[in-house]
Design a protein around this nucleic acid. Structure first.
Lengths: 129, 129
DNA sequence: TTTTTATTGACATCCATTCTCAATAAGCGT
DNA sequence: ACGCTTATTGAGAATGGATGTCAATAAAAA
């Protein structure tokens, strides 16, 4: 028997699509908790994993921060602000990285690119000091 | 007063240069512990951070695994094997990603590229099943 | 040598995430 | 519609990796 359509799974999926701001699992849990206080945190984590594995949402691993989940499953990179730690889409004008290579005996499955820097808000704030 | 040349700091630096296999902080600590059992784990972490900040070693953040430290400070990417979780240099023939862009009000400070896939060992093992 | 203060070591604490396990419920076959 | 199987749930404990606390120590400036 494959995966089941539980109400909790749908709630988690809806939350990721409602929160369009690269939410963490914790933020998704808090959002859900308001209208569905019985849904446990482990259930949120589990369903985020299931949804990501099936390609319905995207799981973005963020080193030294909580991972984020993205309703936008199209291939795109992210920027994390070193100051406020928020994650944004890297939609600035940049050539994409070249296609994933095949060489040296590795089987490359994926590539993740994460930019770090200052977001517009924090950059402005730092310039006003 | 700037930073001090403590014996512990030198021990940590030497360990990173001795372990040329992308060691984690834990592995570095264990290596050190054999010959210098009084050096604490917090000291190892602190000195790894100091050495990385001063550019003497490189700190590579690995999502969902322990971060690794690299004696090779030259700019290069890494591959993590999804099976054995080891980290390798991405020295396969690949065009590098284009230079870091400046656009959209972000100040981009760095970009990290991490490939995931199967290392030669694990690839071979999976083909022999 | 004296003084200053960066650094240490031991341990507690933190954070994000995963595990455990009995209880529940999805959805198949009948 | 009704069981039956088993994927899933909820609560909390447990984990792993890393950082914080703080009195004691030791670089190195004066």
């Amino acid at each position: 028997m494959a995966s089941r359509n539980t109400v909790q799974r749908q709630i988690v999926f809806d939350a990721v699509n409602a929160l369009r701001t690269h939410p963490t699992a914790e933020e998704i849990y808090e959002h859900i908790h308001r209208s569905a206080p019985t849904v446990g945190k482990a259930t949120v984590y589990r369903n985020l994993a299931v949804l990501a594995a099936s390609g319905r949402i995207r799981h973005v691993e963020v080193p030294n921060s909580a991972d984020i989940y993205d309703f936008n499953t199209a291939d795109h990179d992210h920027v994390q602000c070193v100051s406020c730690r928020r994650v944004f889409d890297a939609d600035f004008p940049a050539e994409p990285c070249p296609p994933i290579p095949a060489g040296s005996g590795f089987r490359i499955l994926s590539r993740s690119v994460l930019y770090t820097g200052l977001c517009p808000d924090c950059l402005k704030r730092s310039q006003n000091l």
